[in-house]
Measured scan of single mutants.
Amino acid sequence: VDYIVEYDYDAQHDDELTIRKGDIIKNVKKLEEEGWLEGELNGKRGMFPDNFVKEIK
């Protein structure tokens, strides 16, 4: 499942992704941690907030 970024987010920890509006995040999975998703961007896998992105259908 792929998501498109709607709002910029700067990573706060090493396991998070810095994302920018218009980025496409690939292979996204829901995490047990409420409010977070995990996906791949530019060869890096990491977490990001689910309210900054929208699923591409």
Rank of each mutant, 00 (worst) to 15 (best):
V1K: 10
V1G: 15
V1P: 14
V1D: 07
V1I: 12
D2S: 07
D2I: 06
D2Y: 10
D2H: 08
D2R: 04
D2P: 04
D2E: 14
Y3M: 13
Y3G: 04
Y3L: 14
Y3H: 06
Y3Q: 03
Y3E: 02
Y3N: 03
Y3T: 04
I4N: 07
I4W: 13
I4P: 02
I4D: 06
I4T: 10
I4F: 14
V5N: 02
V5G: 12
V5E: 00
V5T: 12
V5Y: 02
V5H: 01
V5I: 04
E6A: 04
E6W: 08
E6S: 09
E6Q: 11
Y7L: 15
Y7I: 14
Y7Q: 13
Y7A: 13
Y7V: 07
Y7S: 09
D8E: 09
D8Y: 03
D8G: 06
D8V: 02
D8K: 01
D8R: 02
Y9Q: 02
Y9N: 05
Y9E: 00
Y9M: 03
Y9I: 02
Y9F: 09
Y9W: 10
D10R: 05
D10L: 12
D10G: 07
D10I: 15
D10K: 08
A11W: 03
A11P: 11
A11F: 02
A11M: 12
A11R: 08
Q12P: 03
Q12D: 14
Q12A: 10
Q12F: 08
Q12I: 11
Q12T: 09
Q12R: 12
Q12L: 10
Q12M: 13
H13L: 15
H13R: 13
H13E: 08
H13Q: 13
H13A: 11
H13P: 01
H13F: 14
D14W: 15
D14Y: 15
D14G: 15
D14L: 15
D14P: 14
D14H: 14
D14A: 12
D15F: 11
D15Y: 12
D15L: 09
D15R: 10
D15K: 13
D15E: 09
D15W: 14
E16R: 03
E16F: 05
E16Q: 07
E16M: 04
E16H: 11
E16K: 03
E16T: 02
E16A: 05
L17W: 00
L17V: 04
L17E: 01
T18K: 06
T18H: 06
T18D: 10
T18P: 04
T18Q: 09
T18E: 06
T18V: 08
I19A: 10
I19F: 07
I19H: 01
I19R: 00
I19E: 00
I19W: 00
R20I: 08
R20H: 15
R20V: 13
R20Y: 02
R20A: 08
R20G: 04
K21S: 11
K21Q: 13
K21Y: 06
K21W: 15
K21A: 12
K21L: 10
K21N: 07
K21G: 12
G22Y: 01
G22E: 04
G22W: 01
G22K: 04
G22T: 03
G22F: 01
G22V: 01
D23G: 04
D23V: 04
D23S: 07
D23R: 02
D23Y: 01
I24P: 02
I24Y: 08
I24F: 08
I24L: 07
I25N: 00
I25T: 02
I25D: 00
I25Q: 00
I25A: 02
I25H: 00
I25W: 00
K26G: 12
K26Q: 08
K26W: 02
K26T: 15
K26F: 06
K26I: 15
N27V: 06
N27F: 05
N27E: 11
N27W: 02
N27Y: 03
N27P: 01
V28I: 08
V28H: 02
V28D: 00
V28A: 12
K29V: 14
K29N: 13
K29I: 14
K29P: 01
K29D: 11
K29Q: 15
K30M: 08
K30D: 12
K30W: 09
K30V: 15
K30H: 09
K30Y: 11
L31R: 11
L31I: 13
L31D: 07
L31T: 15
E32Q: 15
E32R: 05
E32I: 13
E32K: 13
E32N: 13
E33N: 07
E33V: 11
E33M: 13
E33T: 05
E33I: 13
E34P: 13
E34V: 13
E34I: 13
E34M: 14
E34A: 15
G35M: 05
G35Y: 05
G35V: 03
G35L: 04
G35F: 07
G35H: 13
W36N: 02
W36S: 03
W36Q: 04
L37E: 02
L37I: 06
L37V: 09
L37Q: 06
L37S: 13
L37T: 06
L37R: 06
E38I: 05
E38F: 03
E38S: 09
E38Q: 06
E38T: 07
E38Y: 04
G39P: 00
G39R: 00
G39S: 01
G39K: 00
G39Y: 00
G39A: 03
G39Q: 00
G39E: 00
G39W: 00
G39V: 01
G39N: 01
G39F: 00
E40N: 09
E40T: 10
E40L: 09
E40V: 07
E40K: 05
E40A: 10
L41W: 05
L41K: 07
L41M: 12
L41T: 08
L41E: 02
L41H: 09
L41Y: 09
L41F: 08
L41G: 03
N42K: 13
N42V: 09
N42L: 08
G43R: 06
G43L: 06
G43D: 08
G43S: 12
G43E: 10
G43W: 03
G43M: 12
G43I: 02
K44S: 05
K44L: 11
K44W: 03
K44H: 11
K44P: 02
K44N: 12
K44A: 10
R45D: 02
R45Q: 10
R45A: 05
R45E: 05
G46H: 01
G46W: 00
G46E: 01
G46K: 03
G46A: 07
G46L: 02
M47T: 10
M47W: 10
M47Q: 09
M47H: 12
M47I: 11
F48Y: 03
F48Q: 00
F48R: 00
F48V: 13
F48T: 02
P49L: 05
P49M: 09
P49D: 05
P49R: 11
D50P: 14
D50A: 13
D50N: 08
D50L: 13
D50G: 09
D50T: 10
N51E: 07
N51M: 10
N51R: 10
N51Y: 14
N51K: 11
N51P: 06
N51Q: 13
F52R: 08
F52E: 03
F52M: 11
F52K: 08
F52S: 08
F52H: 09
F52N: 04
V53M: 04
V53Y: 03
V53N: 05
V53D: 04
K54S: 11
K54M: 08
K54Q: 12
K54E: 07
K54V: 15
K54I: 08
K54Y: 02
E55N: 04
E55I: 15
E55P: 14
E55V: 15
E55G: 06
E55H: 05
E55R: 06
I56M: 03
I56L: 05
I56R: 11
I56Q: 07
K57T: 12
K57N: 11
K57W: 01
K57L: 08
